[in-house]
């Protein structure tokens, strides 16, 4: 190897490192800024009280509760349909044109912008089905946005179960559903759960889909029913950072920190579940 080639390599690798640092250093800085300024805003009152004085004081309790409701609602709808659809596609569907169309649709649905899901939710749930802007409309919108991700992750998990497990169960006279229920699902549940939690954590941080389907600008009381509007952390942060002049930064950063923490906790839970099951896995 000529020394010139080695020098070129050195320069090239340095440039690659530079690219990486340009991406990674801002991530670290952003985290540091949110944590440092956010912690100043965090307090028991901040977490448990409603906003006051035009949101310039008080806490973000209704927004936290609203986001929790929305995530639960999303899960309630998207989880069963998503898993069953994945089971259908991996265990039942024959390899024909319909299956291929569904395949293409799911892959592409995952790439449709979240604001378009918002429009869809507005058109179908809020206006056509007359739910109005409500928790149910928002949850359903987020659920439909999460479905493709949940289906894709669940299919991957189902596909990791060896074919021989299915054959053995069938050969022992178990029916197809018994095989799925007692062999396939127990051996893929960790992957399904992990994928679902990650999809839900994404839904928790989305703003555009809830903008016209559920989010309330300011609603200090907690929602009373599924057909009430509610506040939500991402939208609240949007409001705080663009619509409320002269607000103290620590309220904004505090809100951002709570949202990021919530999502990180969900991510960590997913990672822990995954590694826990990986350790136990024998095949």
């Amino acid at each position: 190897m000529s020394s010139r080639a080695l020098l070129t390599e050195k320069i090239a690798f340095f440039c690659l490192l530079l690219c990486t640092l340009i991406i990674v250093i801002p991530v670290i800085l952003i985290t540091a800024v949110i944590v440092k300024n956010g912690i100043a805003g965090l307090s028991w009152e901040f977490l448990t009280q409603s906003p006051r004085l035009g949101m310039r004081a008080g806490g973000i309790f209704p927004a936290i509760v609203g986001t929790v409701y929305l995530v639960l609602g999303t899960m309630l709808f998207a989880l069963p349909v998503g898993i069953l659809a994945a089971v259908y596609l991996t265990e039942y569907a024959k390899d024909n044109w319909l299956t291929r169309v569904i395949d293409i649709a799911i892959v592409n649905l995952a790439g449709v912008p979240s604001v378009v899901y918002g429009l869809f939710g507005l058109g179908l749930f809020v206006v056509f089905l007359k739910f109005g802007a409500s928790i149910i409309a928002g949850s359903l919108t987020l659920a439909i946005m999460s479905l493709p991700v949940i289906i894709t992750a669940s299919r991957e998990a189902l596909n990791t179960v060896p074919q021989s497990f299915r054959e053995v169960s069938l050969a022992l006279g178990a029916t197809r559903w018994q095989t799925i229920r007692h062999v396939v699902l127990p051996n893929s549940i960790s992957g399904i759960v992990t994928g679902t939690i990650l999809a839900l954590s994404r839904a928790a941080g989305e703003t555009a889909p809830i903008l016209f389907t559920v989010a309330a600008f300011y609603l200090p009381r907690l929602p009373q029913s599924l057909f009430d509007q509610c506040m939500a952390l991402p939208y609240h942060l949007y409001v705080l950072s663009t619509q409320v002049p002269n607000i103290k930064p620590h309220i904004q950063y505090g809100t951002a920190l709570v949202l990021v923490l919530m999502i990180m906790i969900m991510n960590i839970v997913a990672i822990v579940i995954r590694s826990h099951f990986r350790k136990k896995k024998l095949w």
Partner: peptide, 28 residues
Amino acid sequence: RKRIGMIFALPNPLPLSIYDNIAYGPRM
């Protein structure tokens, strides 16, 4: 399939205990 059982080329126990492997069929 309950009346015609099958043993495969490679041993393929389910990822269960010895007991549960054998009890799997009867339970189903």
